[in-house]
């Protein structure tokens, strides 16, 4: 194997590397963030999926897990944080509140009805809050999505 030659496409090689080193942003808004912390901690161990390096800044992270209620006051900040992340970037909307307003859907004057109003969402994880297994499935769904991307042909790499 040492002298062997592996044949693959550059896209697949990139995607393999990218999907197994997703760096989420340390960013929690409400009770879903508690489940997100549990997912990152020892018992569920998100690190097994290459997704446990929670970065403390948007500049170094490429996954935003919107965990919790997005109020209108916060939505402006969420959008700003998303814009500060470097491309390619992904968003997981975690829990009912981030998906569509959750229990504040009907009468909540202060809650944004779904974070997809301000940022493009890749994966929606339902639940109130979702169990860690659900978030892990969301991450794995995102990894499958990344594995099928054509980065070199895509808009992100213009002069490749």
């Amino acid at each position: 194997m040492q002298d062997g030659i592996a044949l693959t496409t550059l896209d697949e090689f990139f995607n393999w590397g990218r999907k197994n080193s997703l760096w989420p942003m340390t960013f929690g808004l409400a009770c879903c963030a508690i489940e997100m912390m549990a997912t990152g901690a020892a018992k569920y161990d998100l690190e097994r999926f290459g997704c446990g390096a929670f970065m403390a800044t948007p500049r170094r992270s490429d996954l935003m897990i919107v965990a919790g209620t997005v109020t209108l006051k916060m939505a402006t900040r969420v959008k700003l944080l998303y814009e500060q992340m470097a491309e390619p970037k992904y968003v997981i909307s975690m829990g009912s509140c981030a998906n569509k307003g959750g229990p504040y859907w009907q009468h909540g004057y202060h809650v944004l009805k779904g974070v997809d109003e301000v940022v493009p969402v890749d994966v929606y994880v339902p639940g109130c809050p979702p169990r860690p297994e659900a978030l892990i499935e969301g991450v794995m769904t995102l990894q499958k999505k990344i594995a099928n991307e054509r980065l070199l042909r895509d808009k992100w790499v213009k002069h490749a």
Binding site: L72, A75, T76, G101, W105, Y109, K113, E117
Partner: peptide, 22 residues
């Protein structure tokens, strides 16, 4: 009475909810 928009965001997007029931 809740305002319609805040910072360019719709507070109650009509496409997402049953307004008559609100």
């Amino acid at each position: 009475v809740t305002q319609k928009n805040y910072n360019g965001m719709e507070v109650f997007p009509e496409g997402k909810m049953n307004m008559a029931d609100r």
